[in-house]
Amino acid sequence: MKLWMITASATDDGAPIYLQASGRWTHKLGGGLPLSDEAERDALLEAARADERTACDPYAIAVERSELGLSAASLKEKIRAGGPTISLVEPSPQRRMRAAVGA
């Protein structure tokens, strides 16, 4: 069975957000509302587009359900939901040193 979810970028920080059953948005994909009905998906997407103050450019994504819960179907949406897959620049030797001595 195909599953979808409505997502958008939050206006205040651009972070991915997902539409919940309550009509509010969550930052966690796992907390979003999975939709199996195309008509319902389209209706909720239309409604989400009206929520311009909170959400930018809503669209529907394919999601999958597993024992671990809901996840995005595509790699792009997986990365979007989980953050960059690379380690961000690590603390420099100075910061590590300061942290070590508690300065």
Binding site: S9, D57, I79, P84
Partner: peptide, 10 residues
């Protein structure tokens, strides 16, 4: 003003 919307943030 150079402000894009990217995958995770502005």
């Amino acid at each position: 003003n150079g402000l894009y919307m990217q995958l995770h943030a502005y």
